[in-house]
Simulated scan of single mutants.
Amino acid sequence: MMHKNYLRRVGGNKLLGLAATGALLLAGCGDNAEVMPQTLPDYYPLSVGSYRIYDVADTVWRDNVPTASRFQFREQVLGAPEPDAAGQPVYQVVRSRRNSAAEAWRVDSVLAVTVAPLNITEQFNNRRTVALVFPAVEGKSWSYNAFNNQDSVSAVTRFYQQIDQPFSISRNGKSYEYANTITTVNDLKTGDNNNATKLIVQRTTFALGVGPVYRVSRSFKNDCSGSQGCRFPFVRNVGQSRNQVLIESGK
């Protein structure tokens, strides 16, 4: 049963430290569209004891040969949030994995989700990234890696697409439908993501009152070892493709 708890909003007008400065810069990045008059709904709800289960389709490529696997992830909030250095709540989301519904869950990793007035960030393997920026406006852009050393705060690497739109997807013969979603995608027009040597795709759809319901990540490197340069059409010399579909959530 899909839970309907909304994440907690943090009041106050003052942001402290570097994280707050980055948040303010992120909020203004690439925003040339008209701001929605209503307050942004909660597309990433978090509460103690809540969980989401994803069906994961994963494919690893070596020398253009794919090896596919299927498994499940469970993301669960086990404890109350703790404040960070700027006073913003940080939720520890424990990710567990199992190969099938018949197996027991085994802890895989921990995801730290920080809820600030102007953005929501995720930290995984000591890398903090910006999942959402307030408000959600079609075409609004920001730096996905503003809080790590891969990009600058002013870099444009993520943007909103398909704001307040319905979304449906099928998995294992079952359909999942959501009336109100927003989607974030990486900027495929930049040479850092899409060129003759590599292809990187990142896409996440968030449903109102539910959270992330669909994640796609693809990263491929072309075969450029020959004397003629990179192969065409694109050869997946190495890479990985993974998509995650939410199949259950609750508390």
Rank of each mutant, 00 (worst) to 15 (best):
M1R: 10
H3T: 07
K4Y: 04
N5F: 11
Y6P: 01
Y6T: 14
Y6M: 14
R9V: 11
N13V: 10
K14P: 00
L18A: 12
A19C: 05
A20P: 09
A23Q: 15
G30S: 10
G30A: 09
N32Y: 12
Q38W: 11
T39I: 07
D42T: 04
D42F: 04
Y43I: 08
S47Y: 12
V48C: 06
S50G: 15
S50Q: 12
Y54W: 08
Y54E: 09
D55W: 06
D55E: 12
V56A: 03
D63N: 06
A68D: 05
S69V: 00
Q72I: 01
Q72R: 14
Q76Y: 04
Q76N: 07
L78T: 13
A86E: 15
V90Q: 01
V93K: 05
S96W: 02
A102T: 05
A102S: 13
R106K: 15
R106C: 03
S109A: 14
S109I: 02
S109M: 07
L111H: 09
L111M: 14
A112Y: 15
V113Y: 01
V115G: 00
T121Y: 00
N125W: 05
N125R: 14
R128A: 03
T129R: 09
T129I: 10
V130I: 13
A131G: 05
E138M: 05
G139A: 05
G139K: 03
S141H: 04
S143E: 01
S143Q: 11
N149M: 11
Q150I: 09
F159I: 01
F159S: 08
I163Q: 01
D164Y: 10
Q165L: 11
P166F: 10
I169Q: 07
S170R: 07
S170T: 11
G173S: 02
K174A: 08
Y176T: 02
G191K: 11
N193A: 08
K198D: 03
K198G: 03
T205E: 06
A207H: 02
P212T: 06
V213K: 02
S217V: 09
S219Y: 05
K221D: 00
S227R: 14
S227W: 10
Q228N: 14
G229C: 05
F232N: 10
F234P: 02
F234V: 02
N237Y: 11
V238S: 13
Q240S: 03
R242S: 12
E248L: 08
G250T: 06
K251A: 13
